[in-house]
Design a protein around this nucleic acid. Structure first.
Lengths: 200, 200
DNA sequence: TTGCTTTCTTAAGATATCTTAATTTTTTTT
DNA sequence: AAAAAAAATTAAGATATCTTAAGAAAGCAA
């Protein structure tokens, strides 16, 4: 069986990669963490629900996606171990989400409820800094994605994607990668073939 | 002539729309503000430079854009009075920007150097909160743009754009709007004609 | 006001990407 | 291992969007 304390310790290590935490800070944080187990294809959040937790992938792989009016899936976020995953829109605005957050493998998530997190913001000095920094890098990453959207064609985007997500990319089915990149899966398949030799 | 104190007061009001500031907070902040005047087409930042200020448009209109390898312009951000405008990537990472930040009208910008802002973060209690909240809404807005990129066709994007930027949109030349939306200006022109009657 | 410069429009042909549908391959379940 | 389900490939025809080039309109400067 899995040792939950070890998992929680993993999140503490993750925090320590960015901010300083005392032993008592760590204990305080650990006391607020909840662990959730998800089977493949299970949902952590579905449209209509309000996202009330910050969520950290401890093991496994997930994605955030939504369905447009034509019921097409569009993937907004992919994530694996040690990535945060959420619909921040819903979390921050307290409005119902339009997103699905789904496990793509057997997955373990560590969550903090927004109430607990607010307390931690007050009680653990460096906690706001952690989320400020996270938020900043998330913003920069999203801006990068916007830039790619504006200036790259489909193959360039794909090519950048696989070089950026080295190895990780194999954990996601191709049709999900296509939906992340904003192209039809058949077209991605066509591109892969066309450029087959050139792929690094 | 323009009364600079009034302009600075405008920024204080803007801050007060989101956080609480005492009289002495306001004075402290005001003491760090610099005012910059830009003529139409003038640049506030150019590629290769590091963005060392947080920038607030006091009057006028600006855009952030970059050139791709084919020297095509892509507009990442548009802004008018009371909007913050910057290349956060460069500002946060201290790396050289790839962006142009350009005035599209006679423009007045209020700046705070990153050094001064860091001080304010320590000296004005609510200051970090302001930027945390700003950052959050910027992130959510960018996520919204990503969603549109994934699921809307060009006309839908344009249509959403003009309803979102009511009236403001007339202050930006159409080819810039096209470059913001990620389409060729000729195609935008074609779409406008095609849907001419339906435009609200 | 005239002339110059910038922006916008039009149209034709080229290209990228999508849609549909059938087939094959891979993965999962029994 | 066989059967069922999910994912990937292929190919043809359809559509969206781009490119180029030229002319018209609008804005700005002399």
């Amino acid at each position: 069986m899995i040792n939950e304390n070890e998992l929680k310790e993993g999140l503490i290590e993750h925090l320590k990669g960015m901010i300083e935490l005392s032993g008592s800070d760590a204990e305080l944080i650990i006391s607020k963490l909840e662990i959730k187990y998800l089977k493949k294809k299970e949902y952590l959040l579905q449209p209509g629900e309000i996202s009330k937790h910050m969520r950290f992938i401890s093991q496994g792989a997930m994605r955030v996606y939504y369905l447009d009016e034509k019921s097409q899936e569009h993937t907004l976020q992919l994530g694996i171990e040690n990535w945060w995953i959420n619909d921040l829109y819903s979390y921050l605005s307290l409005k119902p989400s339009k997103m699905y957050i789904q496990a793509l493998e057997e997955t373990i998530v560590i969550q903090i409820s927004s109430g607990s997190l607010d307390k931690l913001f007050r009680e653990v000095k460096e906690m706001p800094n952690f989320f400020r920094l996270k938020m900043q890098s998330a913003y920069v990453a999203l801006q990068e994605r916007t830039i790619e959207n504006l200036s790259m064609d489909s193959y360039e985007k794909y090519s950048k994607f696989i070089s950026q997500y080295r190895n990780i990319e194999q954990r996601f089915p191709q049709y999900i990668i296509a939906s992340y990149l904003g192209m039809a899966p058949e077209f991605l398949s066509y591109l892969r073939k066309k450029h087959a030799s050139r792929l690094k």
